[in-house]
Design a binder for these strands. Structure first.
Length: 411
DNA sequence: AACCTGACCAGTGCGTCTCC
DNA sequence: GGAGACGCACTGGTCAGGTT
């Protein structure tokens, strides 16, 4: 293969920016807000139906490119595929809409071009504006020159990257289903007591429970690890000891997404500074300020908890049981909010929360069931991290032609 | 050592101004 | 009059440092 069929073009010649679309004021249409874009995620998580008042307009196959700081830097770029054919939707005024040109560019290739480091860096360098609200200069992007492969090779490049994104999305979907299953089983056993219906029940301080079970305070079944409410001296470079802060606890999955961790400490600080210790495998990390009662299971053994995060280490009950219990009780935990300016919960209050503790046999069977689900979720999340790393390594090399994808010659 | 407070930065929607 | 540019306002989240 040669480069003879790749040609130098200005991006504006081969991609339409903010193509004209019409929506009447007040018309109900699908709206995709900035918050619905996840960093470096192709798929759009959600949309709402809303009256059109203004903003960017787009169709299926378009790429949405956040142009305002810090959304752009955070990689908020997405590919629209949640609309019907010929449907026009609208979104944040801070999206640049990028659309393929018929027979010149491929829509999925446009998306991968938009998330390629070269394009993103050009966009970030072009940003101007005062009061800290920097925005991309669209004309700089349009006049930026790239080497464009022929259409059939664009499709091949996009298909390669797309296959990886498909697998990542599938893993996420499987994990979502597993989480729902785990919660449904928990509810059936410990809220509705379905498997124990035929047995004897006895009164407890929070209602009837199967005979032989007990009710206790959360604090009796967990040890608490926190970091004294302070921030340790941080490392200038990425180390193997990330600080897990409130932000890292957001998201639906129980597995921490370490790409949300941006602060690290040196080994020396990790070893000496945190007097109450570090989270251990299967501890449950919970946020106590801001987005309160967000929780994750901690897998592995490296990481430090930030202030406003505490670790619950189960003591005498199964960690998976504790996790499902806390997830189910999230509403109750939120009601411990004492913050006036911003939400906050105190551990000293939360540990008084009353929980049901089943007999050992039940606990152990539940744990066996949950452990396999929990392990699978962890494995899938890990696999996704690896796929993301592969995609991010391949992407700039494919877009620039450093690595070529075999394609059928087209006559 | 734990708790509390307020400063400050980040993230986002909205309103207004300007230009075509 | 419509669309884009751009500043403002508000909320969320982090963190240092004072108080208990």
């Amino acid at each position: 293969m040669s480069f003879s069929d790749w040609r130098e073009v200005r991006i504006g010649e081969v991609i339409s920016f903010n193509p004209s679309e019409s929506l009447k004021k007040g018309e109900i249409a699908k709206k995709i807000a900035m918050e619905q874009l996840e960093p470096f995620t192709r798929k759009i998580a959600n949309y709402e139906l809303s009256k059109f008042t203004g903003g960017s307009k787009f169709r299926n196959g378009d790429t949405l490119f956040a142009r305002i700081t810090p959304c752009l830097e955070n990689g908020k770029t997405a590919y629209v595929n949640i609309l019907d054919d010929n449907e026009v939707a609208f979104g944040s005024t801070e999206f640049i809409v990028m659309r393929k040109k018929e027979k010149i560019t491929d829509d999925m290739f446009v998306y991968y071009l938009a998330i390629s480091p070269d394009f993103r860096n050009k966009a970030i360098q072009s940003m101007t504006g005062t009061s800290g609200r920097q925005r991309v200069q669209q004309d700089v992007l349009q006049s930026h020159k790239i080497m464009l492969p022929p259409l059939h090779e664009q499709k091949a490049i996009a298909a390669t990257l797309s296959a990886l994104d498909d697998m990542i999305e599938l893993n996420n979907q499987i994990n979502k289903t597993l989480e729902e299953m785990a919660q449904a089983i928990f509810k059936s056993w410990f809220v509705d007591f379905e498997p124990f219906r035929d047995g004897e029940f006895e009164e407890s301080e929070i209602g009837p429970i199967p005979k032989g079970w007990k009710v206790g305070m959360l604090g009796d079944f967990v040890e608490i690890v926190d970091n004294r409410g302070k921030t340790p001296p941080l490392s200038d470079v990425k180390t193997e000891y990330p600080i897990i802060d409130v932000r890292a606890l957001s998201g639906e999955s129980r597995v921490i997404d370490y790409s949300n961790c941006t602060k690290y400490v040196e080994k020396e600080i990790y070893d000496s500074w945190f007097r109450s210790g570090h989270p251990k495998h299967l501890d449950i990390l919970i946020s106590t300020v801001g987005s309160i009662a967000e929780m994750k299971m901690f897998y592995g053994n490296k990481g430090c908890i930030a202030q406003n995060v505490v670790a619950f280490r189960s003591n005498g009950i199964s960690p998976c049981y504790l996790y499902q219990y806390l997830q189910y009780s999230k509403g109750d935990l939120l009601s411990y909010n004492i913050g006036s300016v911003q939400p906050s919960i105190k551990v000293t209050h939360v540990i008084k929360y009353k929980i049901i503790v089943p007999d050992e046999k039940t606990m152990s069977s539940f744990d066996m069931l949950m452990e396999s689900i929990s392990d699978q979720i962890h494995r899938n999340a890990n696999e996704s991290q690896i796929l993301i790393a592969i995609r991010d390594t391949l992407l700039p090399k494919l877009i620039s032609g450093e690595i070529r994808v075999p394609v059928e010659e087209v006559v």
